[in-house]
Design a protein around this nucleic acid. Structure first.
Lengths: 236, 236
DNA sequence: AAGTGGTCTAGACCACTGT
DNA sequence: CAGTGGTCTAGACCACTTC
């Protein structure tokens, strides 16, 4: 069940993406929109709030709402998006290789990252991401087996997030991410095509479910020249 | 004039930051809060929406709102925060050196970045940021002089954002940012203490005012070991 | 069944922008 | 001044969780 304001949001996003609403165009006023969509103004405002938060429009008091210049085919590691979802936007240029999948007693470091009690096990999933046939990203995932049971080779080769959301019916809610640059390890050198680069861009994520339980710790290790992070930020 | 929901938001943030509301504690229900603050539930919900977006709480349908574990003294380059605002959180360990301030005819590159017409001039502001007496960040700012007139040495040494918001009375609204890793230039080597590092983390920003006019292009160039980007992201 | 958050309505008043 | 977005109200119904 999608709400009215989400439907309106999606419709307007489509209008912007297919060019019906161009950059710098003015949206109809909130009153007009509430007339058009046969809902109250507050419902329109919820849709416009979403558009504004996602960088599609700018609201200006007393004037109206303006369509912003969206750079569509950016590479948005921003937000909380799985590699498979990213790859879909990049076309046929990406490929994933599963290096390792196992159910393990975690190291002290992983135990600390996942805030585990004694004797809980974790899935270790190590994957190499190829872009244009170069191995440029090393993803090391650690998943709490109590929360995420039954990870298979098939799942790891396809998409863990898809498995969690569709098969297990869980809702992924939020993540805390940290980007740093570190010296490449022996593992990085062995598994990636580093081409002489000696440092690695590391994106560390702690990912949580809707009920605030921490289910995943990930290190996504990128060759520096292939790393790009794009962000839209509003000032508060 | 701050709205009711902003006041309520600020009050609850304070309760979380000073420990009155600890991590994993449950907030009163929305009905209780609307009773407490003598406002309607929708107004409470606006305050809670803000708290949720900023990573302070998690709302769970049918259950309630839970205080999240906020890592307070992180280094949040996330969002849209000036160096001076950041420095305030880091205590007495930072210092800014103004390297260059001038009003110039822009290069083709800058003209393109700022989408300038013919013959418009820009302020070039080059500053080195020291942390613990090491020169680790090189900030190169380019400001459209038509929009931001009268930048002085004093302003550049203190805070350009403070000048824009307080002196000029303009409202900074949003930015598009991009993080990449590049080879250090001669300029980087000359102005920073690179300590043998050959690459630089570059944060490029296009910053806009409330009326969607683009007023600033910035390159913030960080020594890799001193760079850290922290982000809170919700999945949509 | 009771309590929670999620959505939606119909209306009001305000602050700001343009003419 | 009219038209815009920003805030707030009082009430309704729904979906979900817990007992």
């Amino acid at each position: 069940m999608t709400s009215k304001y989400e439907k309106i949001y999606n419709e307007i996003v489509l209008l912007i993406q297919n060019g019906t609403l161009r950059a710098n165009a003015k949206l109809p006023s909130e009153n007009d929109l509430s007339e058009q969509y046969q809902v109250t103004r507050e419902t329109i405002r919820k849709a416009l709030k979403l558009l504004s938060e996602h960088g599609y429009i700018q609201k200006i008091q007393g004037k109206g709402s303006i369509v912003l210049d969206v750079n569509k085919y950016e590479f948005p590691i921003s937000g909380l998006v799985s590699f498979k979802e990213l790859a879909a936007k990049m076309g046929q240029r990406t490929r994933t290789e599963l290096v390792k999948l196992g159910l393990q007693v975690p190291s002290d470091f992983i135990k600390k990252q996942l805030k585990l009690e004694q004797s809980e096990k974790v899935w270790e999933v190590i994957r190499v991401r190829k872009i244009d046939d170069e191995k440029v990203i090393l993803d090391k995932d650690y998943l709490n087996e109590n929360l995420i049971p039954g990870v298979t080779v098939k799942v790891a080769q396809n998409s863990i997030y898809e498995f969690i959301e569709l098969e297990l019916g869980l809702v992924i809610s939020f993540a805390k991410k940290e980007i740093t640059v570190e010296e490449a390890t022996m593992e990085d050198r062995n598994l990636l095509d580093l081409e002489g680069y000696s440092s690695i861009v590391v994106v560390k994520s702690h990912v949580y479910l809707e009920d605030t339980s921490l289910f995943q710790y990930t290190e996504s290790r990128h060759r520096p020249d292939k790393f790009r992070f794009v962000d839209f930020a509003r000032r508060h």
